[in-house]
Design a protein around this nucleic acid. Structure first.
Length: 159
DNA sequence: GCCAACGTTGGC
DNA sequence: GCCAACGTTGGC
C-alpha cells in the first residue's frame, strides 16, 4: 500500500501484544486507543489529527519486539471512557465525565506487515538515526515519528 | 528474571 | 519545592 493525499503527521503506537496485538487490531478493524496513562503520551495524543498514520509497535516480546503494521487515525481525540469505569484496569478515580485527564483517538487498521520489523534491524539502520523509539530510556507509548523515518520503516517491510 | 530509566507519590 | 522511596516500562 502506498500513502498519498493530505499532509499527515506520523506517530508510533506501542502495545504489548499480550494485551492488544496487531492481529487483534486487524480483527477489530477500528478501535479507540484507550488506556494511555502518561501525561507526555497524552499530550502527544492531543496533537494527533484525523488522517495521521501510526506505526504499530509490539513491545516487550523479546525477538518479536518491533513494528508490525500501520493504523490510521479516524476520529479525533476525546474522553477516554475506560477511565470512568471501575471495572476497567485503567480506571482512574479522579476522573469524571466532565473532567478527566485521559483522552484517546480512534484508529483503523491499514496494514499488517508479513513479518515484524524487529527492533534490532531498526537500530541497525543508519537512516533511522535520531528516531525517538531508538533513544535510550524511551518508554512513551505514543510518540512522534518524522515523515522521513516513517517512510524509511515502510521501505524495510517485506509487504 | 534482571535492572536501568523514567514517572509518581508523599513526607518534610 | 526537594528528594527518597516506590512503581512501571521494556530491552536484554
Amino acid at each position: 500500500m502506498r500513502y498519498t493525499g493530505r499532509m499527515a503527521q506520523y506517530w508510533l503506537l506501542k502495545s504489548e501484544p499480550e494485551s492488544f496485538s496487531i492481529d487483534t487490531m486487524r480483527a477489530a478493524h477500528t478501535t479507540r486507543w484507550s488506556g494511555v496513562r502518561n501525561y507526555q503520551a497524552r499530550n502527544y495524543m492531543r496533537t494527533i489529527q484525523v488522517g495521521d498514520l501510526c506505526l504499530f509497535y509490539h513491545s516487550n516480546v523479546g525477538i518479536h519486539t518491533g513494528v508490525t503494521g500501520v493504523v490510521q487515525v479516524t476520529a479525533p481525540v476525546a474522553l477516554d471512557e475506560t477511565a470512568l469505569d471501575p471495572a476497567q484496569p485503567y480506571f482512574d478515580a479522579a476522573c469524571t465525565p466532565q473532567k478527566c485527564a485521559w483522552e484517546c483517538v480512534e484508529v483503523t487498521f491499514v496494514e499488517q506487515f508479513k513479518q515484524v520489523i524487529p527492533l534490532t534491524l531498526l537500530k541497525a539502520n543508519p537512516a533511522l538515526e535520531g528516531m525517538p523509539l531508538l533513544q535510550k530510556g524511551s518508554r512513551l507509548s505514543v510518540q512522534p515519528v518524522s515523515k522521513k523515518h516513517f517512510e524509511e520503516v515502510l521501505l524495510m517491510r517485506t509487504e
